[in-house]
Amino acid sequence: MIHQLLRDRPTKLFVLFASFFVANALIAECIGGKLFSLERLFGLPVHTFTLFGESGLAYTLTAGVLLWPLEFVMTDIVNEYFGPRAVRRISYIAVGMISYAFFAFWVAMSVPADGWWLGSKSDQGIPNMQDAFVGIFGQGMWIIFASLVAFLVSQIVDVTVFHRIKRHTGEKHVWLRATGSTVVSQLVDSFIVLFIAFKIGNGWSWQRVLAICVVNYSYKFVIAIALTPLIYFMKSRIERFLGYETATKMKAAAMGI
């Protein structure tokens, strides 16, 4: 039976998607502690601006946003061929694995460091390796909690919007359901993270939360539009891999038809 299961193409596809989905989410969380300048990334001068009374704003983003858009692309692809139940299943697995990873980080940070290791990188400008390790892997609990809540809620929103659009458009307008669901869910994700981590956790003003939310979301909105061709490319490759008949049956089952 196991050999038959491993030869089944839809099963292979789901295992691949689920593995990438979980790994991508975990990596995005791990690298999320680094901030970078979007303007400097493209060699542009940094121009600050004011929004909702908050001055000095610029496109300073967490490195996690480099990977999170792919998570929403994968959500739409899994939703298309396997349905909302599959999306929820891999989302729960991803949250479980992220929670486990941060628990493992906490354990690693807590165990006593060996003496020689502490100064082993001092010639490279790192006087204390334990401080560096904690600085990289340690994140505020509010940020971790906010990120996980935002991830789960935005996934549910993405699934819901995706299927409502598809019920009205059928197989037409792939770009509308894929991009539309991502655009809405990314807005929810951006707001929840900032609200929990910084409004509740750090006492930010509503003006600051909304201003930074708009800045972050404007980036995510553009990326969601830019990645639309990737949806069509992946869809064509998947249907070639599965075969038109199998793909059609899977999409019908995903919609509960």
Rank of each mutant, 00 (worst) to 15 (best):
A224W: 03
T248Q: 11
N24P: 06
V174G: 07
Q124I: 05
F198T: 06
V65Q: 10
F145D: 01
A224Q: 02
A108R: 04
I257D: 13
F162H: 07
N79A: 15
S190M: 01
M250V: 09
N128S: 02
I212L: 13
A197G: 01
D158M: 10
E239F: 08
G33D: 06
I143Y: 04
T182D: 01
A150Q: 03
L67S: 05
L194M: 08
G119E: 09
E171K: 08
V65L: 14
G53R: 06
L61G: 07
G170F: 08
W142M: 12
F233V: 13
A253G: 05
V214T: 10
S236N: 14
L118F: 00
S122E: 13
S55K: 07
I192M: 00
G170T: 02
F221R: 04
D76S: 10
V215K: 04
G96N: 08
M1H: 06
S205L: 09
L66G: 06
N216G: 05
R7P: 00
Q207L: 01
E80T: 15
S147Y: 00
F103Q: 03
K199S: 10
A150E: 02
T160H: 02
V209P: 03
G180L: 11
D131A: 14
S19K: 04
A253T: 06
A132H: 10
I223P: 05
P84Q: 03
S110Y: 04
L5Q: 07
D8M: 04
E245R: 11
T169F: 12
M255L: 14
F82W: 02
R208S: 12
K199M: 11
W206H: 12
S190C: 03
A94T: 14
K220A: 06
D189I: 00
I77M: 11
G201Y: 03
S122Q: 13
M250W: 06
A94L: 02
F52W: 08
I90R: 12
L118D: 01
L44D: 01
H47T: 09
E239M: 09
F103R: 02
F42D: 05
F21N: 07
V78E: 03
S218A: 11
R85M: 08
I136F: 15
A63W: 08
R88S: 09
K199E: 11
T11L: 11
F191W: 00
D123T: 10
V215T: 13
A150I: 01
K251L: 01
L41C: 15
R40H: 11
F241P: 06
G33A: 08
I192Y: 00
G96H: 07
V111M: 12
A63F: 03
